[in-house]
Nucleic acid binder design. Structure first.
Lengths: 159, 159
DNA sequence: TATTGTTATACTCTATAACTATA
DNA sequence: TATAGTTATAGAGTATAACAATA
């Protein structure tokens, strides 16, 4: 029987009009693509998005403590521990004793860590440029500005 | 003993210069705030970000099948099943037999589902407006446009 | 054979409580 | 008592393989 004609070529008839106005809907999908893309670019270096961010922050701020780094990366301290374990085992950073406070560790990059951070940063730049191909610098800056607005602009959960 | 003077007021000395240029870094942080905020706004309705999106899509596209919805929401079919189980148990949607294809379910909203989708959408609009307080419509549109560019603009993993 | 929905499973990311050693 | 780092654990979210029913 020839009943298959009404099948339509799949998702072409699905409308997402009601969701199109929501920034969150678009950001989630874009974020998924971007993160997968970034992690693929970082894989040759044995890094993922978060471990890369941590390494760069340590290179840029040698001697900083784990609590400071966790705050800067907006992740919880317990979750940072395993990330740093990985970086340390890979010989990219060291956890050094702080004489002034024997509870704390000073995070420092090794030479290997600094070199890898540079290479990974270069790879990331290439990758992001490809993903945002043709996006003018001013538009890119605006997006970053709006992300900052969202992040800090918690109009007030209790306000 | 007065040795605490060198302690500094925590993260104020931490620089993230090297990460500031990366859209992914900012998007991830903004996304975390936005998603937490959205989920808080949706909690009174018993919805989360994904289940809300699914419900709205079903209201807007009654009769669609699960594979179509999973494609539209960019989630895997197995993960959609549990989301739909929740919506169905809450009496917001029904899974109806499709005569033409006895393997498939047609997803339809109940009256209760349609009403809840309207209320949740209104709440979301209020919440997102607060989070993006003062952001002009054209800038908002640009952000959405760039998100679309990122999502579709996979310059080519194999290209 | 291929596809729809499903189950089971695993892996990542994130969040919280509680412990230790220091302060 | 409070804080730095840690451990253990639980919860989301996401991804893949494999199955039954049907095409």
């Amino acid at each position: 029987m020839g009943e298959a004609v009404t099948k339509a070529t799949e998702a072409e008839s699905v409308s997402d009009d009601a969701l199109r106005g929501f920034i969150g809907y678009h950001m989630k999908r874009a974020m998924a693509v971007l993160q997968a893309d970034l992690n693929r670019a970082l894989k040759p270096f044995g890094l993922r998005m978060v471990s890369y961010s941590a390494l760069v922050m340590i290179v840029e701020n040698p001697g900083l403590r784990q609590t400071q780094l966790a705050d800067a990366l907006a992740i919880e301290r317990p979750n940072l521990v395993v990330i740093l374990d990985g970086l340390e085992e890979a010989g990219l950073i060291t956890r050094d004793k702080v004489p002034a406070d024997r509870r704390a560790w000073a995070l420092n990059p090794t030479l290997k860590g600094r070199k890898l951070a540079d290479k990974a940063t270069a790879a990331n730049r290439v990758d992001e440029a490809r993903l945002l191909k043709g996006l003018p610098a001013d538009k890119r800056a605006l997006v970053i500005e709006v992300m900052g607005l969202i992040e800090t602009g918690r109009g007030g959960p209790e306000a």
